[in-house]
Design a protein around this nucleic acid. Structure first.
Lengths: 183, 183
DNA sequence: AAATAGTGAGACATCAGTGTCTCATTCGGC
DNA sequence: GCCGAATGAGACACTGATGTCTCACTATTT
């Protein structure tokens, strides 16, 4: 009887990542509940998106924990992060573009914390000598987001095999396109 | 008296890239014309987006021509492409996400042609030995789009200096994050 | 069995955006 | 200066989505 909040968020994420304008009605039906009930649990569409945001941020933070960003080689940590964050990538990309909409309201402070952790990883790699220093850590962070989003989309469109995804992102990000001598 | 179609498209692009839900009214006002006139020149919102798409595709194709993708070193050609395509990147990113919406209707065939040209560039680089072959040309194409989009956004958000943008994209894409011996 | 809380279905008002139309005005060419 | 074409301003109907509310039904609890 009690509504499964997790399931609602999951279904909402699945639909919204595919079409950002999915209506509350469609989301409700996908989650197997009535529109009235959906409104009882989420004050409105905005509230639902916010909840999705909170959830996505939490999941991403969890992925970071699981990836143990501070441990070992920075490149390996990055690989682990890509691996762990893969299931969240699509939602993240959706929320990312959705933030444009909230240009008036304040953005969730959680984003800054996530950014900071990733940027710290890149900076650590630079200080330890494994990462090049002529590209700013901030840009590398943005690039990671961009590649994760592009990757999720490419898989969705069937242009990249899901099995190759993490490897493709990590390898491109770490090694670049150019053929390298050192490997 | 005659409406400057170019200007309308330009203003529309500027607004829509910032907020995808910008209304026809706002676009009209930004372009300095009335909503009625806007409707006289573009049958409706869809038609406007389509026109924007056509325009964006044409501009991108033009950028490719200017970059002379078939000439010289593939890496240099890629650098030229990034350089030439920079002004179009934001619109392209917008159209890219907007295509999700047209999931019912058929997508513009122009995209496939653009993709093909870029993919051909990457393949050429692979065949000539300059680019690694363990990442598919299709994925590299998607990654290029992703990085261009992320870059445009990062500049808009002030996280990357506009002057560094092209260099940042090209260097990351070609060389990757890892510190390399060969340079 | 009774009481309670949660749900589904649907009605309803509201709102924003869209697309169409009319009419007065203005611009440009002749 | 005149005339036709294009424009601006506004009214209007329509649509789709949203948010609220009511009422009947069902599951859970005691």
């Amino acid at each position: 009887m009690a509504v499964d909040r997790e399931r609602v968020l999951k279904e909402a994420a699945a639909l919204l990542t595919r079409r950002a304008t999915t209506s509350m009605d469609e989301i409700a039906r996908a989650a197997g509940i009535s529109r009235a009930t959906l409104h009882r649990h989420f004050a409105g569409r905005d509230a639902l998106i916010r909840a999705l945001e909170e959830h996505g941020i939490a999941q991403f933070a969890q992925a970071m924990d699981a990836a143990r960003l501070e441990e070992g080689d920075a490149a390996d940590a990055l690989r682990r992060l890509i691996e762990e964050a893969e299931p969240v990538a699509a939602v993240l990309a959706f929320l990312f573009t959705e933030n444009q909409l909230f240009e008036g309201g304040e953005i969730n402070a959680g984003w800054a914390r996530l950014d900071a952790r990733i940027t710290a990883l890149f900076r650590r790699g630079q200080e330890e000598g494994g990462f090049r220093i002529d590209l700013s850590a901030a840009w590398l962070t943005e690039a990671l987001y961009g590649l994760m989003g592009a990757g999720a989309w490419a898989v969705h469109e069937g242009r990249v095999a899901r099995n190759d995804l993490n490897h493709s992102i990590a390898e491109l990000l770490l090694g670049g396109i150019r053929r390298s001598m050192e490997k």
